[in-house]
Each structure stands twice: as structure tokens, then as C-alpha cells.
């Protein structure tokens, strides 16, 4: 049954992707991309990747779509057809795919427990996590501790994107506080979105906090929580208008959040160094190394959540508050 469902989902994915490329209406393309992300999330879930599914749904289908739509509002909603070197592109693309298919014929088949991927490093994580870190979610353990340095890098990628978007979109402005688009009533005059939306916002935030603090026990953690909480504030800004959204959390606070979360994360690393361990070796944070690991993970997950939430909101407002030329 699951197999049939999976094949169905995968086929839908391909169809959606073709539709995204073919349609000339960019608005439709973006909405299809959101559907694509949701299908992808469902697919990840079938493949036992709950954390990834949650992230793809929150980040891919949620935040990305909103950013795309606000960019569309500033650019164009229709693609113009043009003459192009179509044959060349088909050629390059076909070669890539033929090469890939050649490689896949020798790949271990799906779900093979004896495949090389399932040996070596992966079982070690599954065996050692209860003993060394003692949290149920192994994905969080690997993410935050065993490969915590990657995750640190990831937080700085988000920070880089935030800095980048603010920098690029600050061109052509005088530098003072950016003017907010004056006439942005949001959806206040629509009764149903207003009532439902207002009811939803606190619950989304609550759910975000749950995902943040429950990350050690179930799917979730800083990235998902940051994205979910950011969505709640974006919804609020869409409902009440841009200026009300910025009153809730002003721009400078968002930038401080994005930078502050990254500082918390790297700061934990510096602290462990000062306490005599390696960078990000949380064991030294407490006399009991397992406790130390758990404290460290909670601290850096908080840093991740703060940066992701702040950065995504700052990016959203940078687009949404920009005057249409």
C-alpha cells in the first residue's frame, strides 16, 4: 500500500515539476512550487525522514513561497517567451541524466539494510547516542553535537542570506529608516481571513515553541521552530498590514535577533574552548558529560531558532516593505 502511495507521490512530483517549467504565468508557477514542496515533504515522511519533512514543509512550502510572492509583487507576474538555444540545453541536460542513470544501475536498492550507507558511521550514531548524549532523537543528536560544526555553518549561511538581502535591497535608499509602503491595509477588510488568522497566530507560535523545545524528543528543533514562528509573524503582517507587522517586531530587532542567535551558537563554542575542550565540545559544560551535552544542545538550538526566525522575518520585510518602482 505504502509502495503504491509512494509511486503515486513521486509521479505527481514529476508532473508538478513539468507544470512549473511549462507555465508562463509566474504566479501559478510559484503556487505549483509550493505544492511541489508539500509533495516532497510527504515523500520524505514516507522515507522515514520526519525532521526533514517538517523542515521542507515549513521552509520550502511556507517561507519560500511567501518570499517568492513578495518578489513577484515587485517584478512581474508573466514570463515572456523568447528565442533560445533550446537544443544546446536539451543536449547538456540529457548528457547529465544519462550519466546519472548509468550510476544508478549499480546503486544499492532502496531500503537494503546491508547497503554501505547503513554500515560504518550510521550504526555508531544509533548505538552511541543513548549512552553519550541520552536524547531520543538521534537526528537532533547528530545535528547539534556530532556534526554541530556543520550546523554552525548552516546558521551562518542563513545569516549571510539575511545580510545579503538587506544589503542588496538597501541600494538606492537614503539609509535612514526605510519608508513603509503607505497604503498597506493588509487583509483587515476581509472578515474571514481576519478572524481565522487572528485566532491562528498565537497557536502557530505556541506550536513553534513546542517544536523548538521538543526537538530532543521528537522531530523538530531550532530550524523548524524558527521557520514556524516566522510564519506566524508573517501571517500577522499580511493580515494587519506591513506597518503593523513592523510595529510588532521592528527591523533593527530582527537584525539583532539574526546576529544574536549566531553569536549564541559560536559563543557556546568559544565557552567550551575556554573550559578546556574542543570547539563545541559540550561535555565540558557540566561535570557530568551527558548533562553537559544536553545543556549544550539546548543552548545552540535556541541560537539556531533565534537566528532563523529573525533572518527569515528580516528577509520577508525587506521584500514586503519595498516600494514598487
Amino acid at each position: 500500500m505504502i509502495t503504491v502511495f509512494a509511486v503515486f507521490l513521486l509521479t505527481l512530483l514529476v508532473i508538478t515539476a513539468v507544470a512549473i517549467v511549462r507555465t508562463e504565468n509566474l504566479f501559478i508557477a510559484v503556487m505549483l512550487a509550493a505544492i511541489f514542496s508539500l509533495l516532497m515533504a510527504a515523500n520524505f515522511f514516507i522515507l522515514d525522514a520526519a525532521d526533514v519533512a517538517l523542515t521542507e514543509a515549513a521552509v520550502g512550502a511556507g517561507v519560500t513561497t511567501v518570499i517568492f510572492l513578495s518578489a513577484l509583487a515587485l517584478t512581474a507576474s508573466q514570463e515572456r517567451a523568447k528565442p533560445s538555444a533550446r537544443m544546446l540545453s536539451v543536449g547538456v541536460v540529457s548528457v547529465t541524466v544519462v550519466v546519472l542513470l548509468y550510476a544508478t544501475f549499480d546503486k544499492p536498492r532502496l531500503g537494503d539494510p546491508n547497503a554501505p550507507v547503513q554500515q560504518h558511521v550510521a550504526p555508531w550514531y544509533l548505538e552511541q547516542t543513548p549512552e553519550l548524549i541520552d536524547i531520543p532523537n538521534v537526528v537532533t543528536a547528530v545535528l547539534a553535537s556530532f556534526r554541530g560544526y556543520d550546523t554552525l555553518g548552516e546558521v551562518f549561511v542563513v545569516l549571510a542570506a539575511c545580510i545579503g538581502v538587506l544589503f542588496v535591497l538597501s541600494a538606492g535608499t537614503s539609509g535612514g529608516p526605510q519608508p513603509v509602503r503607505p497604503e498597506t491595509p493588509g487583509l483587515r477588510h476581509h472578515l474571514i481571513p481576519k478572524v481565522v488568522g487572528r485566532l491562528l497566530v498565537p497557536f502557530i507560535i505556541l506550536f513553534g515553541l513546542y517544536v523548538q523545545f521538543h526537538g530532543e524528543y521528537g522531530p523538530g528543533g531550532g530550524f523548524q521552530a524558527g521557520a514556524i514562528i516566522a510564519t506566524a509573524f508573517i501571517l500577522h503582517a499580511l493580515l494587519e498590514g506591513e506597518s503593523a507587522g513592523l510595529r510588532a517586531i521592528p527591523r533593527s530587532a530582527l537584525l539583532t535577533m539574526a546576529a544574536g542567535g549566531a553569536i549564541i551558537y559560536a559563543g557556546v563554542g568559544i565557552l567550551t574552548m575556554l573550559l578546556g575542550g574542543s570547539f563545541l565540545d559540550y561535555s565540558v559544560l557540566h561535570s557530568n558529560s551527558v548533562k553537559g551535552q544536553q545543556y549544550g544542545i539546548i543552548a545552540i538550538e535556541a541560537g539556531v531558532g533565534i537566528t532563523v526566525c529573525g533572518a527569515l522575518l528580516a528577509i520577508f520585510h525587506a521584500f514586503a516593505a519595498r516600494e514598487q518602482s
Binding site: L47, D48, L110, G111, D112, P130, P136, P219
Partner: peptide, 14 residues
């Protein structure tokens, strides 16, 4: 994500 699947397995939450 395809390569992470193990037959009969579940999400890695102990």
C-alpha cells in the same frame, strides 16, 4: 533521503 531508508525501519527516534 532515498538512501537513508532501511526496509522495515522507522524514523531514528529511540
Amino acid at each position: 533521503i532515498t538512501m537513508n531508508k532501511v526496509e522495515g525501519g522507522t524514523a531514528p527516534i529511540i
